[in-house]
Design a protein around this nucleic acid. Structure first.
Lengths: 342, 342
DNA sequence: CTGTTAGCGCATTCAA
DNA sequence: TTGAATGCGCTAACAG
């Protein structure tokens, strides 16, 4: 098994041409049953397995997607990747994985060049949208020949995008708090520049505006996704607006920090203060009190991205038109104790 | 840019042969400065970028590792993957990622075959050791020609392994509880079959045994890594041994569940009950009370795996001996409030 | 149904 | 220092 066995060896052993072997291993119809059986037998005996690299070179197609992720420390990021992996695997594609450490555009060129050099059939840009990247991306992707699907970012030009409806999530969270009778609903946002953070905030704004609540600026504090920022966030929020009766923390970690701060300050959740998070990390149900939050089906989002890129590839092969649009996944509200006043 | 530009195009445009171009793009010394400059110029003008697939076929080397992970829902798994990615990238390797959904051996053959078909230079088996896989692995890897590095598993034969010293972690946790004056230290283990769970338990056993504590069986409850199992676990533990004064929960999620259960039961942590977790997930510092735990540097572990596989590849190329051994990474104790009685 | 010829894009002999 | 020939393993296009 040290010496690699090739199609040639199989052909020789089976007494046929390499072409016939090729036909058999690719399940082409035009082979006689006898020959097929014989070749398959030899394949098994010799333990032959096709060299996908050679096949790719000759076919001009690698059956590989390049996936660019953003760290893996965020709960969402890794779930999305799982979804992408599952679906790709199901469809017979392999994944070439690259990770971006931060929103520094410097790395991007190298990553894309590498992926293209390796002849990926498509690229899934699973990097969360960020203002710092807005200008950078369009330029860098403009001369990229393979299909690209972006995730969770602002639409910019004719990009194909799949996204979680973060704005809807923000509305769901805020609506729920209003229904529970909370009125002065503060928000601890995600980091400035993140599309997801902006959308969640917009959802909150929309709902607050719809019921006629104004002077929203004094209800906003910026966080950075960490629990620490949630803790500080609640303090700052209370300093700005001592009369708040609820907080929409834009992710569960920050909600956890806020819970912690409330406890220290002797503020009762949910009686004195309602809290809602975002993401539904597995721990959220075990916070104290258990956390009401917005659940995202990140696996489904990943799978959708794969679906889209396959459609794109197929369309391009058949030279068909492909409408670049945004496909949305709906998040949903998970009610637990941290916001349940009635 | 739609038409791919090849080495041939560059050669023609620069008025040299393809070999010369090949030499230039591979930074070989035997090219005159003039020619080199001219070729580089053309490369830039045409936007040429080598086809790594073709290069791989010709060189018989892909500069790619196959990485087999296990879901990504566990905090450790994704951090390890980050470490692998960073280090691989640094060394010029790309990653072909596959994910195993569970310990069902059925998927394994397909994954390995695919990776080998794609001619990876090595495989990093980042699947946590599990009894259900013990027999399966050795058979399946026996006829695999490329180097393999395994992570966090029991040594079985002459495997090259990198591992977190989970047993040390178990000792650190237990030692700490003893130092804090706790004596009846129960344990909520990870799922039966997991190597990591077994090792953490062994660490606990060793330390308990060393100070002469016996009848350990009545202090053991099996969990499954989830917070839910930690909650139930504490209840069951108290039912078995009402006099326990501390719990070593073998991961942070289960510790969280135990914290929750204690709160419900009116048991004061850390006064009446000390609790220590394992992993140091980012949220642990914000549990209530903040959680004492064992921190693992998973990034370092990932990087170490890459180091090892590179050494293995190099050794094999030079036909040198390579001592198959286990390289360990040491975890460390992070003391917070959940166990701080003195 | 099967075999022959050619070529995917590059790198590695060898000569020159 | 450079170029010509050859092959990596496989598949597509064409015969037969």
């Amino acid at each position: 098994m040290i010496q690699k066995v090739t199609i040639k060896d199989v052909a020789q052993a089976a007494g046929v041409s390499t072409q016939t072997v090729s036909r058999v291993i690719n399940s082409r119809p035009d082979v006689s049953p006898d020959t097929r059986a014989r070749v398959q037998q030899v394949v098994k005996e010799l333990g032959y397995s096709p060299n996908v690299i050679a096949r790719s070179l000759s076919r001009g197609r690698t059956n590989t997607f390049g996936v660019v992720g953003f760290g893996l420390s965020y709960f969402g990021s890794s779930s999305v990747l799982s979804g992408i992996e599952q679906k790709s695997n199901e469809l017979g594609f392999s994944l070439l994985l690259s990770l971006l450490d931060d929103f520094n555009a410097a790395q991007i060129d190298g990553i894309l060049r590498n992926l293209l050099s390796r002849q990926v059939d498509g690229i899934i840009w699973a990097v969360p949208g960020n203002d710092r990247l807005v200008g950078e991306l369009s330029g860098r992707f403009s001369d990229i020949s393979v299909p690209v699907v972006y995730m969770n970012k602002l639409k910019n030009g004719d990009e194909v995008i799949v996204a979680m409806d973060n704005r809807l999530g923000g509305r769901l969270a805020t609506d729920h708090l209003l229904e529970q009778g909370y009125r002065r609903i503060g928000i601890i946002t995600g980091p400035i520049g993140w599309w997801e953070a902006q959308e969640r905030e917009k959802g909150w704004r929309e709902t607050m505006g719809k019921v006629g609540l104004t002077n929203l600026e004094e209800l906003i504090i910026n966080g950075d996704w960490t629990a620490a920022s949630g803790e500080i966030g609640l303090h700052n929020l209370l300093a700005k607006s001592p009369d708040i009766d609820a907080v929409f923390a834009c992710n569960d970690q920050m909600a956890l920090g806020a819970l912690q701060a409330a406890r220290r300050l002797g503020i009762k959740v949910p009686q004195d203060l309602g809290i809602v998070g975002f993401d539904d990390i597995p721990e959220a149900a075990y916070f104290y009190p258990s956390l009401t939050t917005i659940r995202q089906n990140a696996i489904a989002l990943g799978a959708l991205a794969v679906d889209r890129i396959c459609s794109l590839i197929n369309a391009r092969e058949k030279d068909e038109e492909f409408e670049p649009d945004v496909k949305w996944i709906q998040p949903r509200l998970i009610v637990r104790k941290s916001s349940k006043r009635i």
